[in-house]
Amino acid sequence: MTRYILRRLGLLLLTLFLTSMIVFLITNLLPGDVASILLGREADEVALENLREEMGFNDPLPIRYLDWLESFFVGDWGSSFSSQENLRELVLNRLGASLQLAFLTLLLAVPLAMLLGVYAGLNANRWSDNVISISTLSVVSLPEFVTGLVLIQVLAHTLNWFPPSSIINAEMSFFETIPFMVLPALTATMVLLAYMARLTRAGVIEELQKPYVRTATLKGLNKSTVLFKHVLRNALLPTVTVIAISFGWLISGLIVIENVFNYPGLGRLLVFAIDTRDLALIQAITMVVVVGVVFANLLADLLYAYLNPRIRLK
């Protein structure tokens, strides 16, 4: 197990290193020049050159990369090109809002997805499973903005249950923000739920076919014992990994959803950053998300290894 953890940690560092390199290269190698973006097209050469020198753009690429990496991990992210706000504060602040949304979504989606998936798996190929399968497939297929708009139409405009967009400001307490989070979270839940339910169903079906289920049944055990103690123990084990896989999926979805509902999270900030061509902000957001995803994966891997004796006792 220690061996396994060490290996995972090593891989994590490698992944972080490589991803940061990818992010850095994308923002530095593509055509265009930050200085001219900042000063506009008409700026004269001397001013441009001064700015480049000042920002270290003339150093060789590897040095710039290391500098950048160091300042990122030290927490010195600089300030926004456009608004001069402190980037770290801005990004972490918005990250908090996004995380709240993500957790609410997971809280709703995970148990529901398990239930649906297990139910469909146990009834594989019957009509109830067909209904679940086709509807989850359809929901998975819909882009989040479509689902979101449908929910706004129905739950906000027609039924008037929730506000259609998230007008949240810093003064509001956590509880006051909850009503504004419901619709975005519901939208994300729909998509995630369908995705995870499908994976769970496949897991249950696969597990049911394994010979140890026969062994257990032919011991004369109760069906509920066979189901809970034997089948689900193994079928739900990969769920940990499923949640981790869904995490990346969830983030992609949240970026869009936040923009549908104007929810003040990282996704909204990212689109704002792109609109204002704020490269430093784009970089910072990407790095924060990537670090989050990588750690979530690590956590899931370790948890899975801990729960699975075949890995734990290696």
Binding site: L14, T15, L18, T19, S252, V271, R277, I282, T286, V293
Partner: peptide, 29 residues
Amino acid sequence: MRFFDSLLAIPAMLFALLLLGVIEAASVG
């Protein structure tokens, strides 16, 4: 595979926005 792992650690939508954002920023006008 290590390289691909790292690429996959960046969620698809984020990656798309990162690339497009940079390209847009670079191609003013």
